[in-house]
């Protein structure tokens, strides 16, 4: 079963994402911010990382940069959840090593569609 690390500081978004992904048969590891996610990611391998950008303690872009430094996350697809107005964020994210992005707001179908695109 494919595992996904879902990172968001907003409880409702996290719940929605987790519920949707679990419903589709993925294994989900939840984290509340970048620091939490990094701790949970270490020593483990997931099939994909899905992270919000604006978060306290460590934002999504820094998280992606940090994860890419870890050998087991060198090629892992990492998507960031971003808003349409943040074009510069997309560029920053790409520079940090993000695979791609998912534009907020999205609905569960769009979420699953994008994930399917990445990890099948």
């Amino acid at each position: 079963m494919a595992s996904i690390l879902a990172v968001d500081d907003s409880a409702s978004m996290r719940q929605m994402v987790t519920f949707t992904l679990k419903g589709a048969g993925y294994e989900v590891i939840e984290a509340v911010d970048g620091v939490d996610a990094l701790n949970k990611a270490k020593g483990k391998k997931v099939n994909m990382v899905l992270t919000d950008v604006n978060m306290p303690n460590m934002d999504g872009i820094t998280l992606i940069r940090e994860l890419r430094k870890l050998p087991e996350y060198k090629f892992t697809p990492m998507l960031m959840l971003t808003t349409e107005s943040a074009a510069d964020k997309k560029a920053q994210g790409k520079a940090a090593g993000a695979t791609g992005w998912l534009v907020k707001p999205f609905n569960p179908d769009q979420l699953l569609g994008t994930i399917k695109k990445v990890i099948g």
């Binding site: 978004m13 929605m16 604006n54 959840l81 808003t83």
Partner: peptide, 13 residues
């Protein structure tokens, strides 16, 4: 960040 979260959630829901 707080505003951003509310916006994101409101759009999603």
């Amino acid at each position: 960040r707080a505003a951003h979260s509310i916006k994101g959630g409101a759009g999603t829901f």
